[in-house]
Design a protein around this nucleic acid. Sequence first.
RNA 1: GCGCUGGUAGCUCAGUGGAUAGAGCAAUCGCCUCCUAAGCGAUAGGUCGGAGGUUUGAAUCCUCUCUAGCGCGCCA
Length: 539
Amino acid sequence: MIEKILQTKIKDAISGLGHDVLLTDIVIETTRDDKHGDYATNIAMKLAQVFKKNPRDIAQLIIEKIDRTHINKIEVAGPGFINFFIDDLYLGQVITDIFHLKDHYGDGEKKDEVINIEFVSANPTGRLHLGHARGAALGDSLARLLIKDGYNVIREFYVNDAGVQINNLGASLYIRYLNLHGIAAELPEDAYHSADLIAVAQKLNEEIGAKYINDKELGERYFAKKGSDLFLEIIKDDLARFRVLFDIYSYETKVKEDNPLDELIKKLDQYIYQEEGALFLKTSLFGDDKDRVIVKSNGEHTYFLPDIQYHLIKLRNENTNLINIFGADHHGYITRMKAALQMFNYDENILDVIIMQLVRLIKDGAELKMSKRTGTAVTLDELIDDVGVDAARYFFIAKSASTHFDFDLDLAVSKSNANPVFYAQYAHARLSAVLERGKEFGFKTDNLVLSELGERNLIKHLIAYPLMIKDSARTREPYKVANYIQQLAAYIHSFYTESKIVDETNIELSKARLSLAKAAKLVMKNALHLIGVSAPDKM
RNA sequence: GCGCUGGUAGCUCAGUGGAUAGAGCAAUCGCCUCCUAAGCGAUAGGUCGGAGGUUUGAAUCCUCUCUAGCGCGCCA
């Protein structure tokens, strides 16, 4: 890895001047302007205070001491940058590395740590909509990224298959069911109004006929159970279509069944007090604004209590860290959950909550409110039909989770070709075509020297791939992969346009360029795979 | 009122202590007898919400402030 090598060279040079610096304090950056060389460091400016000297003078002292193997030229520039111009032959070695490592190029060191990432976790009371789609794309891409970086990853979905929302589902479905039998019944304001429920009611009606039309209680119970089961199946199917597969589905009912909440309350005893007939948990001891109710005065527990149990279950194995992906409307929940975990002597950082800002849906220039109640939500299913999995997934992960963004439905559907994902896929397809065309030539990795600007830019970007993986996994930000992909596509298109890759009059050069094309294609395919996007050979 | 997240080009967004603030889309101008023009090259477009401060250096850090979204239930 070039960065590391340069860091070491610089560190050694600085030691030669009688001063020690940490390797990690030496920042190597790729230059934006090729006049500034290939890589640069600002270390001399950082050391200005220590050395009490002008940064340019320090830079000069460093470059006099530095080992110049693989380096063509070193310059002091601007306010005190040190610019490195790397030998072409040395840069080209990355192609050999990629040929050798193939799909494992960029893999992080294998780690013992398990990362459990919980996302989507939608209530099985309707189809997934746009907001869930963002979470699904984000969570799955993050999972892929962490796996690539060497972690053991568990993708987990928590199903709230108990509680008021399920009863409400049962009641809503029951009314739809009565309607199917010509019985007039109005959906209450707070019922689920979406059209999905009609389809589910119809399906269940086929199984039971008129059995429950005169038995509201049994009917509602039946529809609550069967309806949520059916919706969960629909959710799983939609997710699979979106290329999102979970390792574990955990059920609230099962969590409570296997782990009596009374016992949990006993374990939390020292943090619990009673007030006005309710049980409060002293989460304020751990930074929460106030204490939280876990058992209401009517004897029912709040959602929070089984959720604590659930998080403990996720932590049952040693060496596990948790990631939850939440919508912004749940951010108030973070501190109390971390507080509960700290009551069991876990470090607060064992749980990392990624807050995802909500998606605003724009249609005909105006905001369309998403709500299960009013039934105006755009479902994941419809989204996939309209814009396709690749474009949709790319669209959702290409922006950081903290970005509030507008999803313009008209734009997404009508101008899907404007989606940057096609730019990247097209770059991949072009490389596939040219490799096919040049398949008789073979490849060349020894003494591979490519010195055109476009070739060098592409090579340097391939070199940066492992570092990008590491960085995006560390900060848990898959959008950085999308940024990388865009830049990679741009370099590929430039290279393709500027350099004739298959040239019968220059076999050696063609072999070298085909090798670069093959390496770039492989990296592009793998990068796209990390965000769940396909890499077509033809477009 | 308090808290979380935003405010950067016409639009959607990157950039979180360094060189002239970038990309895609939209706009203008070039480029296919030549490996896929879903492309390339060039031009134009920005008081980085505002004000103060720290620093050799600030879009980036600090304080205040304006503004948008979301929270602040014995709901889930």
